[in-house]
């Protein structure tokens, strides 16, 4: 009887995710344009990636992205959450404001930043240029395009970390905080000795998820730069998408998708090992 209850979920999930995922793994060993019959080519798709300059560029960009998101949103989130814990009054109000960027679609956020901030004619950049600052649209240059996109995603993302960490901090037993205050802890000592250790499981989970999410990043890059200029902001997911739907190299795209998944697997593996370590 209870098996029937989980049947709808499982059918949908297997049909939409598992079966196509298995097909993707198979397709990675074929050459296929999506129309004609697939041709088995062994590891050629992976060999091509190995020799593909753009692939390495995209992989590097994903790693930079991961590094950025492992540091900035987590540090900002921790600081803001700890301050919310300090003031308490108004914490709900601040949380709502910090979540505004999160609830807005990436497409909208991207366009607002492109038009109102980065744009060299209509944006804040243009305004500041007129006051003599040497600024330019970061999306238009190969050296800065990736960071230009990352800033928007960071803006969209850090509030989520702050709210998550604040929720975790509220579960740190009150007496532990009060005891530290009585014993003379400064703000940094409170963070170092009480708050961060107290929410370490949440921080670990968020860092693992950050690694996984960093390899999935798509919307902001696709909408703002399409990976350009000159592939300078290409990431693995936009590259795979382009290979499949623009260049009709589905086998090649499938191989990239497998690389993306591998990073997620490694992160998940580490997480499970950490958890097992804690359980002892």
């Amino acid at each position: 009887m209870y098996r029937l209850f989980i049947l709808p979920t499982m059918i949908i999930n297997i049909a939409v995710i598992s079966i196509p995922a298995i097909l993707t793994i198979i397709l990675a060993f074929y050459r296929w344009d999506g129309i004609s019959d697939p041709v088995f080519i062994g590891l050629e798709n992976f060999e091509r990636l190995w020799n593909d300059r753009i692939f390495w560029k995209a992989l590097r960009n994903n790693l930079i992205w991961t590094a950025l998101f492992l540091t900035f949103p987590i540090i900002i989130g921790l600081v803001v959450a700890s301050l919310l814990l300090t003031v308490r009054r108004g914490s709900t109000f601040f949380q709502i404001i910090y979540l505004f960027p999160l609830v807005i679609s990436a497409v909208i956020s991207a366009r607002v930043w492109q038009g109102m901030i980065y744009n060299p004619q209509s944006g804040i950049v243009a305004l500041l240029e007129r006051y003599g600052l040497d600024l330019y649209d970061p999306l238009s240059r190969t050296a800065t395009a990736l960071y230009g996109v990352a800033v928007v995603d960071l803006w969209h993302w850090w509030g989520f970390m702050a709210v998550i960490f604040f929720a975790a901090l509220r579960q740190v037993p009150q007496e532990q905080i009060e005891a530290a205050r009585l014993e003379g802890a400064t703000y940094f000592q409170m963070m170092r000795w009480v708050l961060i250790p107290g929410i370490m499981p949440t921080i670990t989970l968020m860092m693992i998820m950050t690694v996984i999410w960093s390899f999935l990043v798509f919307d902001f890059v696709y909408v703002m730069t399409q990976g350009g200029p000159a592939s300078s902001s290409e990431v693995l997911s936009t590259m795979a998408y382009r290979r499949a739907f623009y260049e009709l190299k589905v086998g090649n795209a499938a191989a990239i998708a497998i690389v993306i998944s591998l990073f997620g697997l490694v992160a998940t593996f580490f997480y499970l090992r950490l958890q097992r370590g804690e359980g002892e």
Partner: peptide, 13 residues
């Protein structure tokens, strides 16, 4: 944790 790209292409076709 599965990336959308892992199942997107066969699903689309």
């Amino acid at each position: 944790t599965a990336p959308i790209q892992l199942f997107l292409f066969p699903l689309y076709f």
